[in-house]
Amino acid sequence: MIKRWVIWGLFALLSVAVLISSLGTAFQTLPLNPDMAEMALIYQGVIHHGWRFPFTWRFTQDNQILSLLPFTLIYYALASVSGASIIIQGWLIFVVNALLAGLLVKTVTHSWRWAALSWLLSLLASPMAIGQPGILAYPVTHNSVWAFGLLGIIGLIRYLSDRPNWALPLILMCVAVGTISDPWFEAAFTVPVLLIAWKAPRWFQTDKTTRRTLVKSLIITYIAGRITYFGLELLHMVPGQGLGIASFPEMFQHIKLLAQGVGVLVQLYPLPKNNYIWSIWVIYFISLCSIIILALRQIEWVGFTMQRSSCVPNRS
């Protein structure tokens, strides 16, 4: 009992420390840019010009209507608009995503220890990864939507494993928000979920009824979201979407940017420039690969256990 309290106390202490550290990083990412302050400007517009103001605002492609606007209107009503509140807004989204990442790890591994480690590591990401391009700019656009993406992944895993009553509504809610609030959500979440649902009988040992229900519900929700987006477009509240398939050179460039981004996130990029740092880099790389292998083995073991338990007949 004492050991458990000591572990939880240490975890709470480390959590406070990394939260303070990440908040300090946020305040080092000045100056502000228009993307960071967009929701503050909309709030000021509503205060001075009324609730019709958002319908006169020309949102960008990542329009944030459902993913961020309802929450930031409440946030700025409580905190008021200032440089500090704008920075803390982005930091709070970063913290929420770190928390959801921990819950996602808990869903996969069924282990609060792995979840706690994920939470701490997310908050301790490289300052280059959570600096101005990450903690302030993108969280008030794409990363605010990806809070719903993480929620949707959690709901998907639970729906395919033990089907609680809340899992499917959670997935559909996330798809609806993402479809209306961010056009990239379709390629990053909705299409992969449809692919997983298609292969679910083989990958997750699910029955056809489960798969068909998920696929039909996703398609209906997506169509409803696209119709809603079209209505908002007619009201000039969202821009028209000119999305298409990228060319092969663009795909390779995006893959390169993805690799660099992941490398920055896990502090493997940029590459070192002297032999001493190279030796540390190699030790870190080997350690990181070992942790990933152990994590994958843990996930594989959990999946095997779940599959065996589903095959054991009920003796009651």
Rank of each mutant, 00 (worst) to 15 (best):
V175N: 09
R52Q: 12
P127E: 06
Q307R: 10
H48M: 15
I292S: 13
L294M: 10
R202S: 15
Y75C: 02
L104G: 00
L170T: 05
V266W: 09
S181C: 08
T29I: 05
P169Q: 06
N143V: 00
T29A: 10
V175L: 14
V145Y: 00
T206A: 05
I2Q: 12
L170F: 01
A17G: 06
E38W: 11
I293A: 14
F304Q: 11
A224H: 01
L257F: 13
S85V: 06
H142C: 13
I223H: 07
T213F: 08
I2Y: 02
S111F: 00
P183T: 13
G303L: 12
S111Q: 02
H49W: 06
L232N: 02
G155R: 07
I130H: 03
P54N: 14
S22R: 05
P201T: 10
R211D: 04
A115M: 02
P201S: 06
I74Q: 10
W184R: 15
S80Y: 04
E250M: 07
Q241S: 14
M36A: 14
G178Q: 00
L288I: 13
L78M: 08
Q260F: 00
V215P: 04
M173I: 09
P70H: 10
L10R: 09
K3V: 10
V108F: 03
G244F: 03
S181G: 12
S247A: 13
I180D: 12
V108P: 01
S21V: 07
N274R: 03
L271R: 06
I86R: 02
N97M: 13
G240V: 11
V262I: 11
L296H: 10
G102K: 12
M306E: 05
F11E: 13
I255N: 02
F252V: 14
V16Q: 06
A37H: 05
P169W: 01
L296Q: 08
Y222S: 14
G45K: 04
K273G: 14
I255R: 06
R113D: 08
F148E: 09
S181E: 03
G263T: 01
L172G: 11
G83Q: 07
L104A: 07
R212T: 12
Y269G: 03
I47P: 06
W166R: 04
L194G: 02
G90D: 07
L218M: 05
G102Y: 12
S217W: 01
I255L: 05
A129N: 08
C289L: 15
C289R: 08
W301I: 15
R202N: 13
I87C: 04
Y159T: 02
R297P: 09
R158N: 06
G83N: 09
P133M: 08
L257M: 11
L235F: 11
R308I: 12
Q307S: 00
L194I: 12
